[in-house]
């Protein structure tokens, strides 16, 4: 059976650090950075390579910050 892998691209300058995406991810891929963006928000970052491209994070993000890719490998 083909394995599914995914990747997300986070537009960190648009992220407001609300953390809603972190609770929506089934793979615990997302956490908040220690650094802040130019608006002063701690932004979302990936902390592992376990993304499966389910898009849960993107559909709950109020600011449309996340782009999602999914592929069979």
């Amino acid at each position: 059976m083909a394995k599914i892998t995914g990747d997300i691209v986070i537009d960190i300058e648009r992220c407001k650090g609300c953390e809603v995406c972190t609770t929506a991810c089934p793979q615990e891929v997302i956490a908040m950075s220690k650094e802040v963006n130019s608006k002063g928000y701690n932004y979302a970052i990936k902390v592992n390579a376990n993304c499966i491209g389910c898009a849960n994070c993107a559909v709950v993000c109020p600011d449309g910050v996340i782009t999602v890719y999914r592929a069979k490998v």
Partner: peptide, 19 residues
Amino acid sequence: ETFDKPEIRTPENLVYSKT
């Protein structure tokens, strides 16, 4: 470490982007 997978970021693999 960024955990990026640039090899899968192709238009046919795109499943979600801001409308």
